[in-house]
Amino acid sequence: MTQSLMTDTRLPKDTEPYVDDAHRQPARPLRDFLASLLSSKSGLVGAVLLAAIVLITLSADILPIADPQKRSLSTRYLPPVWLERGVIAHPLGTDGQGRDILARIIHGARSSVIVGVSAVLLSGILGLVLGLLAGLRGGVIDLVLMRLVDAILAIPAMLFMLVVALVVGSGIAPLIVVIALTNWVVYTRIVRAEVLRVKDLEFVAAARVSRVRVTTLILRHLLPNILPAVVVVATLNVGTVILTESSLSFLGFGIQPPQISWGQMLADGRQQLATSWWISTFPGIALTMTVFSIILLGDWLRDYLDPRLP
């Protein structure tokens, strides 16, 4: 799954001569940014949807919704309010234990967002550090790290995650570890390639008198150059992670109760899809819409930032 994100990374490089992104900053970045976003239909749709989702997630505690953990035998399998037997107290119905679907979706969004963002942050940091290490140090460290990267990239991500999950177990924290341990390779590659490129630039070569200055110089020129690529990859990555969590839930390694996640609701409710469709359909829609808006936003970001992915 993760690899599909990297789809574009090996596309033939554009032939136009390279212009340092750091020197191509627009004069009024925020205004340009917004203008570009507003003119892109899909980017705008993604941004608005995503903003709405994040807003609802953040306000989960103050919204007038039911307790997501409250079981009730008398309210099992209630359909959504607009169907016969539906009640206003449970607008999207209840599951087999009488728990409110809407409340669970809203609270479940948290796990999805937490896992998505933390896993991406963690793999980003890990990738950045190791990429810098490999690029700057070179030698044996570089060799070993890159063999590791090649190896992990050659294994389907889902397969690798399952094997890691066997070791660390399931739950929110283990899941973040599982995903981060799989995903860091993407960032390592980007960072390392950029370090190697910057290293060869003339002014860096000229500054080789003092070792410290070279590192600082590289870092200073490196970050603005890799940032767009990292931002694009990371954005799309959050979407992939949310999807991955649902697949892991399906295979039994996802987020487990008492924590709630969309993947878990979807995987648990799949058996009732034919009898009580609302149990897994609504979380499915929530998940799909979120990932959908992330992809739209990410695609637009890619066009806007136009990163040179190595």
């Binding site: 799954m1 690899q3 090996r10 596309l11 050659a154 389907p156 991500a157």
Partner: peptide, 24 residues
Amino acid sequence: AIPTVTMTSLNVIALLGGALVTET
């Protein structure tokens, strides 16, 4: 053609990963 071939080759790994779930 060329980008498609690239993408296909990369997708094969991801497809194999997706096959874990789909085949089940």
